[in-house]
Design a binder for these strands. Structure first.
Length: 494
RNA sequence: GACCUGGUAGCUCAGCUGGUAGAGCAUUUGACUUUUAAUCAAAGGGUCCCGGGUUCGAACCCCGGCCAGGUCACCA
């Protein structure tokens, strides 16, 4: 909330126009009069009353805190007003919203303080805010730290732990940065259905719901890939969407049932081209959110500066295990996995075995952003077969801090091949794989009308936000992470 | 889903070997118009997560459950 030197006092009309902290910092270097000096220009401000000690009170707004000086019997133009304000001050409670007007001075210790001459009440807090206090040595007292309360009552967390906002502000900067980058290239941000009659584009269990009027089953999307490709069929050269996706699976510090991906599809391009785009875009995102390409994540410093390391999956496995598996048969792969103590079972085919070896032996060791390319075809039913390497597809993932941050391929645009891949998925489904893809006839029909060669990309925005904000849990980059219902507390309060 | 840890006042926590439920902050009242986490005095505030069991007696021990965090498993 800004302080305004000229406007007439009516705090109910206050609008945020200048962050308080910025304003106060600006004043620290100026010579303000001490208490009793000739009054300065009048300012007005509104915010939360955060406690009082004698005549000194604290007022907080979205960006900072200002000390108020409330001298009994002096606030208001008339004696009646002054008495009313003295009574109001007695009734003020931590968390109440007030508006004040007055002039600034510096206290003996140099703190910028508003000498209040007029006061208005703006909103009541009925509940006690947990008050966090910090002393000069930086020791924190009575911190609001219970993770359950912080996540269930994020509004309280944000009020009493203002630093919590930082990660969310950075998250928005990330989105802004990507939009800016993709819009500058002329790609179109679009919206596609969240309620889908068939779920597709990924391997995951969906949430299921029902439309009453249409009397039909609908699924919350697990991905939007198949819809964006339909738009490529329709003639757009580049489309992207920040897509809230839903997967009915386990939860962990990396998994929330609803999460966000950006998906991007660009016609007449391939995965090599897309790798360059990812490097360039993510480097820009790091710069725009943190001002540097180097990001501290836990004990690691991660540098997003281009170019990133590139390994084929075979090269990565050879690099970390010393074993060249590129020419191996399924039996040899199984023996190799056992030799490396990678847990495998008899149902795993060649592709799955390779994926397991990579996941166990390589992924966690890839800390700096690294592209892994050329995946086994069995794991990638929507990716185009490799132009020269049999059994592989033109696919890459970027791994960072031991976790996948993006997935991309040259999209499969051969409708006959795509139908076969779907049918293989159907077989997997019949054998009990409840994450196997379902066959989407309408999507195949779209492909049968012809799709240009296309490069596709998905980036997990939550995972990327965790890295960019040095957050240990996805819950720290989601305002309202999914929680079980708090039945007892609800009943007790109602 | 498995294992570990935790759940006591609005918040942060203590509570010994099973023996009347505690502190600080916050709140209310009074005093003080002063400072820099915490002025002084007094007061109010509890389903000790829930349900059973053992016991003369349970916040504490046992059994079952709920919720959360962590680790692992799962995870395109």
């Amino acid at each position: 909330m800004g302080l305004d030197a000229t406007a007439r006092f009516d705090a109910r009309l206050n609008r945020p126009d200048q962050p308080l902290a910025e304003f106060v910092d600006g004043l620290r270097s100026t010579a303000l009069g001490h208490y009793g000096a000739e009054p300065q220009p009048r300012f007005r401000i509104a915010g939360r009353f955060m406690g009082q000690r004698g005549p000194f009170a604290k007022l907080r707004d979205s960006a900072g805190q200002l000390q108020l000086y409330l001298r009994k019997g002096t606030i208001g133009a008339t004696e009646e007003e002054q008495q009313r304000n003295d009574a109001l001050i007695k009734l003020l409670h931590i968390g109440d919203f007030i508006g004040v007007q007055g002039y600034l001075f510096a206290t003996q210790t140099g703190e910028v303080t508003l000498h209040v001459e007029a006061l208005t009440f703006l909103g009541k807090s009925l509940r006690n805010l947990p008050i966090v206090k910090t002393d000069k040595e930086g020791n924190v007292y009575d911190a609001f730290t219970d993770p359950e309360l912080r996540y269930r009552q994020r509004y309280v967390d944000l009020v009493v732990n203002p630093q919590v906002k930082d990660a969310f502000i950075k998250r928005t900067l990330m989105y802004n940065s990507m939009r800016e980058y993709l819009n500058a290239k002329g790609y179109l941000e679009v919206e596609t259905p969240i309620l889908q009659p068939l779920y597709g584009g990924a391997a995951a269990r969906p949430f299921k719901t029902h439309h009453n009027t249409l009397d039909m089953t609908l699924y919350l999307r697990i991905a939007n890939e198949l819809y964006l490709k339909r738009l490529i069929v329709g003639g757009f050269d580049g489309v992207y969407e920040f897509s809230k996706d839903f997967r009915n699976e386990g939860m962990s510090r990396f998994h929330n049932p609803e999460f966000t991906q950006i998906e991007l599809y660009v016609a007449y391009k391939d995965y090599e081209w897309m790798m360059n785009l990812v490097e360039e875009m993510v480097e820009k995102v790091a710069l725009d959110t943190n001002g540097t390409t180097v990001v501290q994540v836990g004990d690691q410093q991660i540098d997003f500066k281009r170019p990133w390391k590139r390994f084929t999956m075979y090269e990565a496995i050879e690099h970390y295990t010393g074993i060249d598996i590129s020419e191996m048969s399924e039996a040899e792969l199984r023996a190799t996995a056992k030799q490396l103590h990678v847990p495998v079972d008899e149902t795993m085919g060649k592709g799955k075995l390779i994926d397991e070896i990579f996941g166990e032996k390589c992924e966690a060791q890839l800390i700096q952003p690294t592209f892994i390319t050329d995946y086994p075809v069995e794991m990638s039913p929507l990716a185009k077969k490799h132009r020269s390497k049999t059994g592989l597809v033109e696919r890459f993932e970027a791994i960072c801090n031991g976790k996948e941050i993006c997935n991309s391929f040259s999209e499969l645009n051969d409708p006959i091949d795509q139908r076969q891949r779907f049918e293989e998925q159907l077989e997997l489904g019949k054998r009990g794989d409840d994450e196997a893809m379902v066959l989407d006839e309408d999507f195949l029909r779209a492909l049968e009308y012809g799709m240009p060669p296309t490069a596709g990309l998905g980036i997990g925005m939550d995972r990327l936000a965790m890295i960019m904000t040095n957050s240990n849990s996805i819950q720290d980059v989601l305002f309202f992470p999914q929680m079980k219902a708090e039945q007892r507390a609800e009943e007790a309060e109602s």
